[in-house]
């Protein structure tokens, strides 16, 4: 596949976009800005043909950077991040919303990116694990994870940290038990849970810089 690496001026130039408009044919592209894309296509063509053209323009912000992309509607936000934007910090652990490894923030709220179609995130602000630190300065929860050894293999860790930051911001980190419940959407097979709770409790108490 071609890596659709983000550029600031792709919109209006890419072959895919032209293909999209061509394919749309009778379709009415009311607007390609965040709010509304209306397509009233007629009969669907055969998948083999349709699949080749069926890309939509998508504009979203990832870790503060604007991306203008062409994506198939069936592409999930998770696969978009990992396979097209090249941000592999967000992990695929089940692809079914059953493990939390793919947790990212959309407009500050934690979600499972494996069950969110990329096109549903038009105009949204996405934050992934790669966007949490400020340059070389780690986020306090990242620091706390290292301090408390809140992981082993590290695969669930980005999801745990994104979930943990949200857990604190939501006000669900009031006690160890509350954290346990509100961090239960993130599986960890190595069994780092007690240390994850410690890291979140300490970061919550630190109270700064979330």
């Amino acid at each position: 596949m071609s890596k659709t690496l983000p550029t600031s001026d792709e919109q209006g130039k890419g072959a895919s976009r032209r293909d999209f408009l061509k394919w749309s044919g009778a379709a009415v592209a009311v607007s390609l800005t965040p709010s509304v894309v209306t397509r009233a296509a007629g009969e669907r063509a055969d998948e083999t043909i349709a699949g080749f053209f069926e890309k939509m323009p998508l504009k979203l912000e990832v870790n503060g950077k604007l991306h203008q992309l062409q994506v198939e509607p069936r592409t999930t936000l998770l696969d978009l991040l990992r396979e097209q934007i090249g941000l592999t910090g967000t992990k695929k652990g089940c692809d079914q919303g059953q493990c939390g490894a793919c947790t990212v923030h959309v407009n500050g709220r934690r979600i499972n990116s494996c069950l969110s179609l990329a096109v549903m995130n038009e105009g949204q602000k996405i934050t992934t694990i790669e966007g949490l630190a400020k340059g070389d300065e780690l986020h306090p929860l990242q620091e706390a994870f290292i301090k408390h050894d809140a992981f082993q293999c590290g695969y669930c860790t980005p999801g745990q940290i994104m979930s943990g930051v949200a857990c604190i911001n939501e006000g669900h980190a009031g006690s160890a038990d509350e954290i346990r419940e509100f961090m239960s959407g993130n599986l960890c097979r190595c069994g780092a849970y007690p240390h994850i709770v410690d890291a979140i409790l300490e970061t919550k108490k630190g109270g700064n810089n979330l």
Partner: peptide, 11 residues
């Protein structure tokens, strides 16, 4: 997953 049409509505 098949590639489907996607339509976003506002009202």
């Amino acid at each position: 997953m098949i590639n489907f049409d996607y339509l976003r509505t506002a009202s």
